[in-house]
Design a protein around this nucleic acid. Structure first.
Lengths: 355, 355
DNA sequence: TTGTACAAATGAAGTGATTGATTTTACGTT
DNA sequence: AACGTAAAATCAATCACTTCATTTGTACAA
């Protein structure tokens, strides 16, 4: 701060004009130019044209920073990826969310700031974000429970929307029905006569992971199958944890593995293929996410579809409404997740048997 | 603009203070508080302590927007993903770049803005970015040739660094030696006695794709193998284009396929596996990128490694130097790319023959 | 007791917009 | 011609900071 040189190479190249200049050149006052730029009424049509002409001629662009100071709104939305999941950032889930957020933001003329947590900084992450403060609201992508970040933002008075399970009673959030989605997947496996169904969960300090595990347990309970903690492997959402989870569950003689992310399911397929285990004949595999690659695996992956892009878009729209004061009640949306049956669960086999 | 309600629910909750308030409360002037906040010299140690105490007590945070207006620097960096490649955004390449940029930015106390091109808007994309103007400099991720975006930014006077092959003579850029990387891959295949080597390129209006194709041609030329346009399939960097490329090249009786991205190589493996073609026995496959999943495919993928994170980090560091006026000469860095030999190229086979 | 030097603090003019209160202009009525 | 009215334009305050020129304060030497 304050240590930057005063003269900027590129500043000298661009002749910058401000409202006042344009006003002078067009022979009107600053206010009038402001009205024209902001498409406000009460300005004569000829005057408007004249001003626009001058603006065009001088290639004038409004200084957004000054406007932000005056209006107290930057028209910037933050997307926050907590450090707890930064290692998973390269998973297609986040790009999808970000892309849809970015699109909605653009439609409403908002810019998007991105904050990705860094393993090396602990507490400082939330502080950095809050200290910056140059955004109107924040979207928090699936953080862990009791993430201090949320409290930080909340205390600092920033509007925010959580993408994932909520942390507080009255939080604004947009989530997928993880529990029911997982439930359907496991019910399906049970229907296909699988008896020992293993699960590879995500980190259990994340709401989404817990909900999916709950769906698994509900399905077992409804079928009167005893819950066996040995069949539960806590993964990290990474491919390698699917791989190791599968190896561990093989020891338990499972006949089905439910990996709660497609990426982990990929790891499962790799492990089983290496061990010469046939999918779905010997072990059925079901994933979660329905990522683009899920239909391209071998065998094609049966998985729980979640509408990731819709989730991000809805969250963004909600945040904008919140920021613009159009949202009075807390907004809490839960999107359905449904099972997409492909090859890896063995539904085909059963059908053939029936025939 | 200008249509937002004047009273904000959350504004009433947070008692906001400004420099003037703090100055009054600490019994000093605004300037002094500013010095303290910015860690500048010429302020008495006791005064400094006193001011800091008041700041702490009132939970004061500097208004970054006002500072930006005064200093004419927002301390924001933009990462721009042109619409031409927005479809590939979920590829791990971009998250990796963004993550490393984000990290470097954080280290230098910069925030990161993200602009992702949208297929639906053509020309408006660059305009939107420039009109926003609330950033000090931009990082452009691998755009197509003659992308009007670069011209836009350049005209608007924004410092920028290109990640990928440069568009102009004097542009600042950070790139990978795509040509040499591809060259090594193809030379390796030739050394393994492959005679008909097909290539699946990226979009040929992108510099990186062209450079990789050039490397392929150079390798053939050096080995006195005639270049055959029938062995060249123009892909899109997407998995499916690898799949279709492989099917097309199968018609040409190739004995090796060089896919210039790992994701496309994945598609190649899928196609070959479906057709019952053995890799590497019947057809050798080489990818490009060395993505995390490359070592987890079956067979493990031989591929050209490129240091994606380093690329992003270096670009970010360069941009910050540029923005802060510490860069006088154009910065042009080319990172080496090297071949990582695994199973899919069939190097093992040859060794065994020799034994 | 001044004068000088230097550190510390202050005052005021910027930065470029928005916006509500106010004045000017244009135009149709009486 | 005087008046009322509404539209159009202007004025001035405000947003919250930085920074340069200036003043104040202190200590030490002459």
């Amino acid at each position: 701060m304050g240590t930057l040189p005063k003269i900027w190479l590129l500043d000298t190249l661009k002749m910058k004009h401000n409202l006042k200049d344009i006003a002078r050149l067009a022979g009107v006052s600053k206010s009038t130019v402001s009205r024209v730029v902001n498409n406000q009424p009460n300005v004569n049509e000829q005057t408007r044209e004249k001003v626009l002409e001058v603006i065009r001629q001088h290639n004038f662009r409004l200084n957004t920073t000054a406007r932000a100071l005056a209006t107290r709104h930057t028209h910037i939305l933050s997307v926050i990826i907590p450090q707890s999941i930064a290692s998973t950032f390269t998973e297609p889930y986040f790009p999808s969310v970000i892309q849809s957020v970015s699109k909605v933001a653009a439609e409403h003329d908002y810019a998007v700031m991105l904050w990705i947590g860094n393993d090396e900084e602990e507490e400082r992450f939330g502080e950095r974000i809050v200290m910056n403060g140059m955004f109107d609201g924040a979207l928090i992508a699936s953080s862990i429970e009791n993430d201090p970040l949320v409290e930080h933002l909340s205390k600092a008075g920033f509007p925010y929307v959580i993408i994932g399970p909520p942390h507080f009673e009255n939080a604004n959030y947009v989530d997928v029905d993880n529990c029911t989605g997982a439930y359907h997947a496991v019910v399906h496996l049970i229907g296909l006569r699988r008896k020992r169904i293993g699960i590879i969960t995500g980190p259990l300090n994340m709401g989404a992971s817990k909900d999916r595990l709950a769906g698994y347990r509900n399905a077992l309970a409804d079928a009167n199958i005893a819950y066996d903690a040995n069949l539960v492997f806590e993964g990290t959402f990474e491919e390698s944890s699917g791989y190791h989870g599968a190896l561990a569950l093989l020891q338990q003689n499972v006949d089905a593995i439910f990996a709660v992310s497609d990426t982990m399911a990929l790891g499962v397929l790799r492990a089983l293929s290496e061990k010469g285990v046939k999918v779905p004949e010997d072990i059925a595999v079901v994933g979660f996410d329905d990522m683009p690659f899920a239909s391209h695996t071998k065998p094609a992956l049966t998985t729980v579809h979640q509408p990731i892009a819709e989730l991000g878009a809805d969250a963004a729209r909600t945040l904008i409404r919140l920021v613009e004061g159009q949202l009075v009640e807390p907004y809490q949306a839960i999107f359905p997740a449904y099972l997409v049956v492909r090859e890896s669960c063995g539904a085909q086999l059963i059908k053939e048997v029936h025939v």
